Simulated scan of single mutants.
Amino acid sequence: MTKKVKGIISNQLRKKRFEKDEMTQQELAKVLGVTRQTIAAIEAGKYSPSLEVAFCLTDIFATTLDELFQWQANESESDKD
């Protein structure tokens, strides 16, 4: 058996927006070139951003990836190969 690693990505995006002059989702979306719905989905943990968007977010908020995004792994067993 092999183990599959799955996990949950959480983020501090909403907190960082409010720390940056209470930036709205719409304002952030415009800077990134994405929709407000994309920002809402990332904040809610329903969507993981591309690496490009993730790195852009770190530039916008002058932070690091590991401060903005957190990974919590859950190992589960899968079927035999």
Rank of each mutant, 00 (worst) to 15 (best):
E77M: 07
M1I: 00
K15N: 13
Q26I: 09
A54C: 11
K20V: 04
T64D: 08
V34Y: 07
T35C: 10
F69H: 01
T24E: 03
G33P: 04
D81T: 01
S78P: 03
C56A: 15
D21A: 13
C56F: 08
Q72K: 15
R17N: 02
S48W: 08
M1H: 12
L32E: 02
F69L: 02
E75F: 14
T63L: 04
E43W: 06
V31F: 11
S76G: 05
E52K: 14
R14A: 11
I42T: 06
S78Y: 09
R17W: 04
A29F: 02
Q12E: 13
I8G: 00
T2P: 13
S76Y: 05
C56P: 01
G45R: 00
L57S: 07
E43Q: 04
D21R: 12
Q25D: 03
L65T: 07
E19S: 10
A54V: 07
A29C: 08
R17Q: 07
K16L: 15
E75L: 15
L13Q: 05
F18A: 01
F18C: 02
V5R: 11
P49W: 00
D79Y: 01
V5L: 14
V34A: 07
L57N: 04
E43A: 01
T38R: 10
D79W: 00
K16G: 00
T24Q: 02
M1C: 10
S50R: 10
A29K: 00
E67Q: 08
T58R: 05
S10H: 02
Y47S: 13
N74Y: 15
E22N: 15
K30P: 02
L51A: 11
K46G: 12
A73M: 12
Q12W: 01
S10P: 06
K30F: 09
